[in-house]
Amino acid sequence: MQNEIIRVMLADDDEDDRLFFKDAFEEIKIKTEVSTLKNGIELMNFLNQPKVILPHILFLDLNMPGKTGMDCLREIKSIDRLKDIAIAIYSTSASEEDIEETFVQGANVYIKKPHEFSALKKILEDVITINWQYHTSGLNRDNFLLSL
């Protein structure tokens, strides 16, 4: 993974958040290829294309019109070709119900959108440098919510 460019994808309906997301990765000194999509429907249409190059990590906003992040998560985990993509929930709120439900549905990590840009950079860097193999095997409810 170190030599390869990490493909990062974000589905978020908020333009500002997509901007912060891209800006943050620009400043991180890790080779990444960032692509953003405007909502869940767009995301699923993209992923369902044949022979598409899948991202390594998918960041999912929960609150999206049409198809919510939760809908997307369920759909992805039900498709064999997609179910191995590492999924990071990327949400404004961190309600117990949302955390519980996304964990049960098979998300890998839960990120609460930070209030400061520096914090955002730090948490995104942490997420993409996680050894996913290791993280996933030891995943539990306590380390699911990534906090700084």
Partner: peptide, 15 residues
């Protein structure tokens, strides 16, 4: 919950 969203952006922009 809904107040958090714009506030977070304000804070992020400030930073």
């Amino acid at each position: 919950h809904d107040l958090q969203e714009p506030l977070r952006k304000i804070q992020t922009f400030i930073s």
